[in-house]
Write a protein that binds this DNA or RNA. Structure first.
Length: 282
DNA sequence: ACCACTACCTGAAGGC
DNA sequence: TGCCTTCAGGTAGTGG
């Protein structure tokens, strides 16, 4: 588990970039729906609503993948914690992987007109899929905060968003209403770089240094994912889980990379926070 | 409204 | 073919 990331924004973006050439412009010729639900019930008639649809575009909003279809509907995918996407077959002359034998927890399989097969596997079923009109909104998306890599996420916005918060900064940055796409791992890494203790009150935390550090941490992780994309076609075809080195996450007891003080673990809102008690100040 | 806590689910890891 | 407990984490729902 160490060194393997859960699907936060950078992992989902990596999946999107890997899937885009295989899906966009191609048609879903067969959809295998192997169970009625993931975290929520799958949409009614999902198989028939997908089969024959051409994928026009593959977008990302926060940790959600959004595939716009020629039918006027959009397929929403969330990887939850353990969701994985595997590409197999041959597409556009690129060899991905032989079609594997079906695995436990292969819940949805899409067969594309270009010969590629896209398998969604999710052991814990914290993931989700839904279909909704592209012209409409979706309840899972409406209340999300701004994209951290977008222009709407800036010092002015974050200052205002934190000012009313009586919660620790750790909890505030995990709140998808404040900023969309951060998870436990990258919040720990951001606070380490900002030298801010995770228990500091949000309202007492300056937003100015956080905004560029959030962008920096996410962009570095996306870059690491991009480099992993160069290799996955030759290996197992699995998107979204790449090796990435963390400075504090899951490193309890190990030396801080800056001052060598042992990293500590603290539970906040039921989640582990990893931090350097010397570098990160309340 | 805001905030903390828990359920959901499976598999990996560690203690004995 | 060991059993049991604990832990991981995203988010919706619940209750304070």
């Amino acid at each position: 588990m160490s060194g393997v990331t859960m699907p936060e924004l950078p992992e989902v973006e990596t999946v999107r970039r890997g899937l885009h050439p295989v899906m966009a412009g191609h048609t879903i010729v067969q959809a295998d729906i192997n169970r009625p639900d993931l975290r929520f019930p799958l949409p009614a008639n999902m198989k028939h609503r997908l089969e024959g649809a051409t994928v026009l575009n593959l977008r990302r909003r926060s940790k959600y993948l959004l595939a716009d279809l020629s039918t006027g509907e959009t397929l929403l995918i969330h990887l939850g914690m353990s969701g994985r996407i595997l590409i197999s077959g041959q597409s556009l002359g690129t060899f991905y992987h032989d079609h594997p034998a079906p695995q436990k927890h292969d819940h949805v399989v899409l067969h594309m007109s270009n010969g590629a097969r896209i398998t969604f596997n999710d052991a814990r079923r914290f993931g989700a899929m839904d279909l909704f009109a592209t012209s409409a909104s979706h309840s899972l998306l409406t209340d999300l905060g701004p994209e951290p890599l977008g222009n709407d996420f800036n010092e002015t916005y974050l200052t205002a968003a934190l000012a009313s918060r009586k919660t620790p900064i750790k909890s505030a940055l995990l709140d998808q209403h404040v900023v969309a796409g951060l998870g436990n791992i990258y919040v720990c890494e951001v606070l380490f770089r900002a030298r801010i203790h995770p228990a500091r009150l949000a309202a007492a935390t300056p937003a100015a240094p956080l905004v560029p550090l959030i962008r920096e941490v996410l962009l570095e992780a996306i870059a690491a994912g991009g480099s992993s994309l160069k290799d996955y076609r030759q290996t197992d075809g699995e998107l979204g889980y790449f090796q990435h080195r963390f400075q504090v996450y899951d490193r309890k007891g190990q030396p801080c990379p800056v001052c060598a003080t042992p990293i500590e673990r603290l539970v906040q809102s039921g989640r582990s926070s990893f931090y350097c008690p010397n570098c990160q100040r309340s």
